[in-house]
Amino acid sequence: MSLPHISAFYFASIALVLIGLYAVLVKKNILKMLIGLSIMETGVNLLLISIGYISGRSAPILSEGIGPNQAVDPIPQALVLTAIVIGVATTAMALSAVIVLYKRYGTLNVEEIRRLRG
């Protein structure tokens, strides 16, 4: 088989999610946690895309010679488009929150920023 087996995509994307989760759970620096979140998000997107992949078919764009039966599943692609936008928006918002946190506390270590507790 010339194409890599489909489970390699699954493996890699789940691995990306786990790497991101690791960063979120273990790293103390908020920026690193955010990087972890971004990695996780990438992994999730890749996972979604690879779920829709059907071996040997082309992109789901209706054009000459390519009908609904020759294309991969279009629904995950639409979902991922939405998810990317949401991901960017949340990342941007989280980054602005980090800026505010740094101004307020002078540190980015989560252990030290503990005055959020209620």
Binding site: L25, K28, M33, V110
Partner: peptide, 14 residues
């Protein structure tokens, strides 16, 4: 449990 540490909450979730 509600200790104000963001990371702990991530752990609970995980």
């Amino acid at each position: 449990f509600y200790n104000g540490n963001v990371q702990s909450y991530s752990w609970y979730l995980a």
